[in-house]
């Protein structure tokens, strides 16, 4: 196995919320003890429902927030906030909402040149513009789009601009925070193909955050399923989709629609809401909603175990589906 571009160990992020002059702030455990590795040219997908800590993970990886505990290793070197400024160019991000992620007062050209302006001031303006124009054509936009403002573009085109901006610094890791969930279905596939195509050409490592399993099936190599800030299942895409071991993964998979209407699927309906991350009970966080839960589930937290495909469950689903 090759050495990973980036790896994380025991990554956790806790927030203090509430808390005024007289009340003690509560601790919100957004992400807890996450391990993963990103390989060049490979895509790691992170799936989970809203509020499970996917976006917090993205913020830690892109060095916007410092993790409460755990470490991120980039090229064999542990990242500390002191290195952030130097390492920014290695990790970039594409956001979910293409309408909010582009500055409405800047032209596309300005948006694309800003990363270079900040990070490599030595480049001449002409060269900078040249690079921005090249990037524009790389993501499939035309040269005349250079001087236009973001509000003149459709959602798909805006997302292309966002991808172009992220690539301007020639990063090696790209975090894609639900890059297609705000787009029309017809445009989703175009953007996904662009993303896959760029990965092949530039040998990028992707951290692909999504809640859409059909999209994940299309782009991912490895998958992490998150639930309430923890990884509940982790493994190769093929194995995970073919034989999910964690009940939550199985429930998620059963909820994705199939193309074949004749195929009968047994839809697993989950009862109840995601428990609040503010008062985490002992035991498995999924236990209140799990149909297989027993007493041990409510008392002790299962660890992530296994070789190829890891699962955090006391009663993992076997290959026979029970």
């Amino acid at each position: 196995m090759t050495t990973p571009v980036m790896s994380a160990k025991g990554l956790s992020q806790h927030y203090n919320v509430g808390g005024s002059l007289f009340t003690k702030p509560q601790v919100l455990r957004a992400v807890q003890g996450l391990d993963f590795e990103l390989q060049a040219g490979k895509t790691l997908a992170v799936v989970g429902e809203s509020g499970c800590g996917k976006s917090t993970l993205a913020r830690m990886i892109t060095m916007i927030e410092e993790p409460t505990s755990g470490s991120i290793v980039l090229d064999g070197k542990t990242i500390t906030p002191a290195d952030w400024a130097k390492l920014r160019t290695t990790v970039q991000i594409v956001f979910q909402d293409p309408y909010g992620s582009l500055n409405p007062r800047q032209t596309v050209g300005k948006i694309l040149q800003e990363p270079l302006l900040i990070n490599s001031p030595g480049i001449s303006p002409a060269e900078r513009e040249q690079k921005a124009r090249e990037m524009l054509s790389l993501v499939g936009l035309r040269n005349e789009h250079f001087d236009r403002y973001p509000h003149m573009f459709s959602g798909g085109q805006r997302q292309r601009i966002a991808v172009a901006r992220a690539l301007m610094l020639e990063p090696r890791v790209l975090v894609l925070d639900e890059p297609v969930s705000a787009l029309d279905l017809s445009i989703q596939s175009a953007i996904l193909n662009l993303i896959v195509d760029l990965q092949e050409r530039l040998n990028l490592a992707y951290l692909f955050i999504s809640h859409d399993l059909s999209v994940v099936r299309h782009v991912a190599d490895d998958v992490i399923v998150m639930y309430l800030g923890r990884a509940v299942e982790k493994g190769r895409k093929e194995a995970l989709f073919a034989a999910p071991q964690h009940p939550y993964t199985k429930a998620l998979l059963s909820a994705t629609p199939h193309a074949d209407p004749t195929q009968k699927t047994q839809r697993i309906k989950l009862e109840g809401e995601l428990p609040s991350p503010l008062n985490v009970m002992p035991g498995c966080p999924f236990a209140p909603r799990c149909w297989k839960a027993q007493d041990i589930c409510r008392q002790t937290m299962p660890d992530l175990v296994g070789n190829e495909n890891q699962v955090a469950c006391h009663f993992p689903i076997g290959p026979d589906g029970t």
Partner: peptide
């Protein structure tokens, strides 16, 4: 877009 500017440094 503000977060994006921060990520860019």
């Amino acid at each position: 877009y503000v977060t994006a500017a921060r990520v860019v440094g």
